[in-house]
């Protein structure tokens, strides 16, 4: 039941199927915005975690390259790769805002104070409380998430129907699994 539903676009009327260019534009804008945001946060993270900073740098550059490349038309296999990579990135984002990830530095008051080394000590001796590695949700990172959602949805729309059906199913399953996991953790 491949019912065509009207979608919002700049050019198409409500009765016409959406032209691919609209999705290409939306995907490119999403990628560009996410890329810029990732690059913006690189310097701020440098002092806290160099690997995290490098990760943001890599993702940001890749997203800007993607934004430029989308206009030229990309093979379906690459589009599938783009969706998969962004599902992973968004999964990482959601995880970093909900659970303690071992590679995220804790940021409670105890860790943000200066602590000179203790003579003869093993480690820094600072207790790390459950939840202290959970990053707070901010405006910039939510914006980035929305941009990436626009990107993956638009890229999915560019896929041929059969492949698109598979990819949207994968995305829906990822969402359901994430929600089920959260409910399980809370119970």
């Amino acid at each position: 039941m491949a019912t065509t539903i009207p979608s919002v676009s700049s050019s198409g009327s409500i009765d016409e199927p959406l032209p691919g260019e609209g999705f290409v534009l939306a995907a490119a804008m999403g990628a560009a915005m996410a890329g810029v945001i990732h690059l913006v946060v690189v310097p701020g993270h440098w002092a806290v975690s160099a690997p995290m900073s490098a990760f943001f740098l890599g993702v940001g550059v890749a997203q800007l390259v993607l934004a430029a490349a989308l206009g030229r038309g990309l093979p379906d296999a690459v589009l599938v790769g783009v969706i998969s990579a962004h599902l992973a990135i968004m999964g990482l984002y959601v995880a970093s805002r909900t659970v303690d990830l071992p590679f995220v530095p804790p940021h409670d008051a105890a860790h943000e104070m200066e602590h000179l080394p203790v003579p003869g000590a093993v480690g820094n001796g600072i207790p790390t409380y459950p939840g202290s590695r959970v990053e707070p949700v901010g405006v910039l990172d939510l914006l980035c998430l929305v941009a990436e959602l626009v990107l993956v949805i638009s890229v999915a729309a560019l896929l041929p129907p059969r492949l698109r059906g598979i990819m949207t199913t994968v995305m829906a399953c990822a969402a359901v699994l994430a929600v089920l996991w959260r409910v399980w953790v809370l119970s």
Partner: peptide, 25 residues
Amino acid sequence: VDLTRRDVAKLSLLGGAAVALPLER
């Protein structure tokens, strides 16, 4: 291109979960 209702429903699920989970926490 065209998105089916089913595609839209599935994508909404993704968007909803991605935004709701961090906010809920």
